[in-house]
């Protein structure tokens, strides 16, 4: 079975590595990759690292990218452009932790890319208390 791939993107490598470990425990079947920090290991984002992360989980059902802030978005858009503006690579407008959690579970249900994005973006309206 194919699952929608998920990419976690942050200015911090440690942050996405930690989130990856959490999500792998919940749903080990979904293709999941991370990109965080610059080439030299500093805080920031690196377009080539993002491109590689997308390629590593690319599959026929598509890939959803969750990101933190600012330049992460600019670099993610640039990476998508470098991959030929493939319509199956999509950005989710969602909080990184809760959105990724929802996305990974939705993807694990075998859902379509639209449903995975909807689940991730649903996390924006989440009341935790």
């Amino acid at each position: 079975m194919n699952y929608v791939g998920v990419v976690l993107l942050s200015h911090s490598y440690d942050l996405v590595k930690g989130l990856e470990a959490l999500l792998k425990q919940i749903q080990p079947d979904v293709p999941l990759s991370v990109a965080g920090g610059t080439e030299s290991g500093e805080i920031g984002t690196d377009v080539f690292q993002i491109k590689k992360a997308i390629e590593s989980v690319m599959n026929p059902k598509g890939v959803v990218i969750l990101f933190d802030l600012g330049s992460a978005l600019i670099n993610a858009e640039l990476a998508i452009e470098m991959l030929g503006n493939n319509k199956d690579i999509r950005l989710a407008d969602a909080p990184l932790v809760e959105g990724a959690y929802a996305a990974i579970i939705q993807s694990g249900c075998g859902s379509s890319i639209e449903e995975v994005i909807k689940a991730a973006e649903g996390a924006k309206a989440l009341n935790k208390l």
Binding site: E98, A102, Q106, A123, A125, L126, N127
Partner: peptide, 8 residues
Amino acid sequence: KSIISLMS
């Protein structure tokens, strides 16, 4: 059926 609902 909604993970977001369960997360609330």
